[in-house]
């Protein structure tokens, strides 16, 4: 069970309060009808699934109920950072340098 820093509650809280919600930074297109079938397929189904640094969404569903974003290193299963849904992607190099 991980400890997750909720960027809204500003506390490290047990994973049991949270729910994973897929890859982050995949915005729903403003006008889906303008997308080709291939573009729409990619939006629906194509995900990066990296070995290493992954940008993902979590929801503090049993807490403040907010969706937020996280940077997690998938090999060691460690959170490098969490940030609010409306914040930009953090710079990876600043996180992976000597992350504990």
């Amino acid at each position: 069970m991980l400890l997750i820093h909720c960027p809204y509650c500003e506390q490290d809280l047990p994973e049991l309060e949270f729910a994973y919600a897929g890859e982050a930074h995949i915005a729903r297109p403003a006008d889906p009808s303008k997308l080709t079938d291939e573009e729409w397929r990619d939006f629906l189904f194509i995900r990066t699934n990296p070995k290493g640094v992954h940008f993902e969404r979590w929801r503090h569903v049993n807490g403040c109920a907010r969706f937020f974003n996280a940077v997690r290193e998938t090999v060691g299963d460690k959170f490098l950072a969490t940030y609010r849904a409306d914040e930009p992607r953090p710079d990876i190099s600043s996180l992976t340098g000597d992350a504990k």
Binding site: Y8, C9, E10, G63, C64, A65, R66
Partner: peptide, 14 residues
């Protein structure tokens, strides 16, 4: 502040 209480109000989320 999430978790704070004032009067009759408990802040549960932003």
């Amino acid at each position: 502040r999430i978790g704070a209480i004032e009067g009759c109000a408990l802040c549960l989320g932003p």
